[in-house]
């Protein structure tokens, strides 16, 4: 089976449109028409897991947000990724700001600002402790303050 160049160009055009439509649906968590909905939904979840893993690899502080995978999935299915994983985390932060902010989310947004070098310090939960986070150059130092229900002082550590 061989195609002449013109036929191949037509095939490329049709394939491009079809792949773009299907990928847009999958990235938005929508089963494309005609696909098995269970398999398509699982494929969407696999895609968003990859995207979340890339975001948390690039910016490990993402994983400090309580319930981050669920929130990131909600974000990812609403917003197409543009740019690199760092850009994705910046967009995720913007998306979080635009929704009702719980105390946990608010604390994490301040922490993300420290990691991004936009804020010098903040108090936020890390590893079950309320901690003071201080940006020093490209590092962030953490000083444990209290752990609910009791309070305990911990040693500082750098990340």
């Amino acid at each position: 089976m061989t195609m002449i160049a013109h036929e191949l160009d037509v095939a490329r055009g049709q394939l491009a449109a079809r792949q773009a439509s299907v990928v847009a649906d999958l990235l938005a968590g929508r089963p494309p028409a005609g696909f098995d909905p269970v398999a398509a939904e699982l494929t969407s979840r696999i895609l968003v897991r990859k995207r979340a893993s890339a975001a948390s690899y690039a910016c490990p502080e993402v994983a400090l947000l309580p319930g981050w995978r669920g929130l990131f999935t909600e974000y990812a299915w609403q917003c197409v990724e543009h740019g690199c994983a760092h850009d994705d985390v910046v967009a995720f932060r913007r998306w979080l700001v635009a929704r009702p902010v719980t105390p946990e989310i608010g604390a994490w947004l301040r922490l993300a600002e420290v990691y991004a070098g936009e804020r010098r310090s903040c108090v936020a939960i890390r590893n079950g402790f309320w901690s003071l986070h201080i940006g020093v150059g490209k590092s962030v130092w953490h000083v444990k303050l209290t752990r609910a229900p009791g309070s305990r002082l911990g040693r500082g550590e750098r990340s």
Partner: peptide, 25 residues
């Protein structure tokens, strides 16, 4: 396929990166 574009010319279309290996039709 790993990325999709609404035209076969990825330089001039709106490219969607799947971020994963997807089966072609």
């Amino acid at each position: 396929f790993v990325r999709a574009c609404d035209t076969p010319d990825a330089m001039h279309g709106d490219v969607l990166e799947a971020g994963h290996l997807l089966p072609p039709p």
